[in-house]
Amino acid sequence: MATVLWLQGGACSGNTISFTTAEEPSVVDLIVDFGLELIWHPSLGVELGENARRIFDDVVSGVQPLDILVFEGSVIQGPEDSGRFNMFAGRPMKEWVNDIAGQAQVVVALGDCACWGGMPATEPNPTSSTGLQFHKRNKGGFLGPDFKSKLGLPVVNIPGCPAHPDWITQVIVALASGRAGDVALDELHRPQTFFKSFTQTGCTRMQFFEYKQSTTSFGEGTRSGCLFYEFGCRGPMTHSPCNRILWNRQSSKTRAGMPCTGCTEPEFPFFDLAPGTVFKTQKVSGVVPREVPEGNDHLTYMAHAMAARVAAPQWSKEDMFVV
């Protein structure tokens, strides 16, 4: 039986809510069938009040052993490094994080805010928010670049805004069933099993991408084409399994016609949402995408594009997702 403590800092609870939509295992399965001991959670916990505070104190003192700390939300450091923008159980939350992270066998940052600061850390970052072990793409964050949990692991980052429920439930089951050694991390501390592939991997628009055929508009325009060329889709540059492990067991944003916003990468929201950047592909000379698929450069991209357009069959210029 693994003990899990779940806390929220500068959070919207989106990762918790996403977690509750899990199936196979569901939240109930995790607890009843997998014997997970959720020693406290802001919305699912049973212990109240003084009992809750006692749990936190016992974890800090080591009386209550803690296998997994799940942290959701940014670490709020303002104003002026006091942490008073986010008080919790009588203290700035950042102090709890500092005290509890050192007692956990494994620390999991769940969602962009906990991984790298996320939405609250968007310019001008009014609350001085940061992630547990990264600030945006820079290693460090609140706990510092050298932090290791008791098991000797850095913070395990499960990004996304929110993270898909399976990404967290499967990692929890892996950690709780003694497979921590199988959780290989990439340079951003993300489990490779989920984040090696691209958001584009498995996208139903992939054939349109191959033949460089663009979607022409939102709505009925998305019955055809790829969203990369005009609508700012970041699918080819973003690492996630959104089109391998579908959302709510049904679909994904790109399948439904919404451009990927790159929410599993530290730069999300990209360009700090500057005017002209939302749902619009940024271009060089008005034609070539400023960012090309990972591993390409502008020259090879253009050569490939030219050949692809020549090769494009008629069906790639017609609607595919029809009534």
Partner: peptide
């Protein structure tokens, strides 16, 4: 919601 908006929570469709 996911069928029309791609995912829930946090779509912007």
């Amino acid at each position: 919601y996911a069928i029309f908006g791609g995912q829930w929570p946090h779509s912007s469709f």
